[in-house]
Simulated assay, not measured.
Amino acid sequence: MRRSEFDRAVRDEFGAGAGGLIVDLVLASLGSRTAAQALDGGVPPRDVWLALCEEMDVPAERRYGAGRLEPKRG
């Protein structure tokens, strides 16, 4: 997962509150850091996304493949 895919997945899943969520919510599974701190510290976006999903009880079917653009039709 790229950072752009992470950003898209968070925005799609959490809507308008997404920005505040990644800077305010402390995730114990990431060393008691926020998602933003973990990303800045080099934690891969996929790991941060999954930790955020776990904390926010996002159903498993919405966790994997999130943030990817639909393939171009041609």
Results as ranks from 00 to 15, higher is better:
13 E>R: 14
42 G>Y: 03
14 F>H: 10
19 G>M: 01
27 L>K: 00
63 R>Y: 09
51 A>M: 04
30 L>Q: 00
48 V>G: 04
24 D>E: 03
42 G>S: 12
34 T>Q: 01
39 L>P: 00
49 W>F: 13
74 G>V: 12
24 D>S: 07
39 L>F: 01
68 R>L: 15
71 P>Y: 02
31 G>Q: 01
45 P>M: 06
51 A>V: 07
74 G>W: 12
18 A>V: 09
42 G>K: 03
32 S>M: 07
11 R>H: 08
68 R>I: 11
67 G>R: 12
73 R>Y: 09
74 G>S: 15
19 G>E: 01
20 G>Y: 04
33 R>N: 09
9 A>G: 06
43 V>M: 05
24 D>I: 04
4 S>P: 02
56 M>H: 09
27 L>A: 00
17 G>D: 09
58 V>L: 13
9 A>R: 14
57 D>Q: 07
46 R>I: 11
35 A>C: 02
49 W>L: 08
69 L>F: 11
54 E>V: 12
62 R>Q: 14
33 R>V: 04
2 R>I: 07
31 G>H: 01
7 D>N: 15
12 D>E: 15
19 G>K: 01
73 R>S: 11
54 E>Y: 08
55 E>V: 12
57 D>E: 15
19 G>T: 00
9 A>V: 10
56 M>G: 13
44 P>N: 11
49 W>V: 10
67 G>C: 07
53 C>G: 10
35 A>G: 03
31 G>P: 00
43 V>A: 02
7 D>K: 14
72 K>I: 07
42 G>F: 07
10 V>K: 10
43 V>F: 03
36 A>N: 05
44 P>H: 14
66 A>T: 09
70 E>N: 13
65 G>C: 12
70 E>D: 14
51 A>D: 05
49 W>P: 05
28 A>N: 08
68 R>K: 15
12 D>H: 14
29 S>P: 02
67 G>H: 07
6 F>D: 02
2 R>V: 11
43 V>Q: 01
40 D>W: 00
2 R>E: 14
62 R>M: 15
49 W>T: 03
7 D>E: 15
62 R>W: 13
51 A>E: 08
46 R>C: 05
2 R>G: 09
7 D>F: 11
28 A>Q: 02
14 F>N: 05
57 D>C: 11
35 A>V: 01
61 E>Q: 15
31 G>N: 00
29 S>Q: 00
53 C>W: 08
1 M>L: 09
66 A>N: 10
16 A>D: 07
41 G>N: 12
63 R>P: 12
58 V>K: 10
69 L>C: 12
9 A>M: 13
21 L>F: 00
32 S>Q: 13
25 L>I: 03
55 E>R: 15
23 V>M: 04
44 P>A: 15
37 Q>N: 04
33 R>A: 06
25 L>Y: 05
73 R>T: 10
1 M>G: 14
43 V>T: 11
48 V>Q: 10
14 F>L: 08
56 M>K: 15
18 A>Y: 04
17 G>N: 07
42 G>M: 08
74 G>M: 07
24 D>K: 07
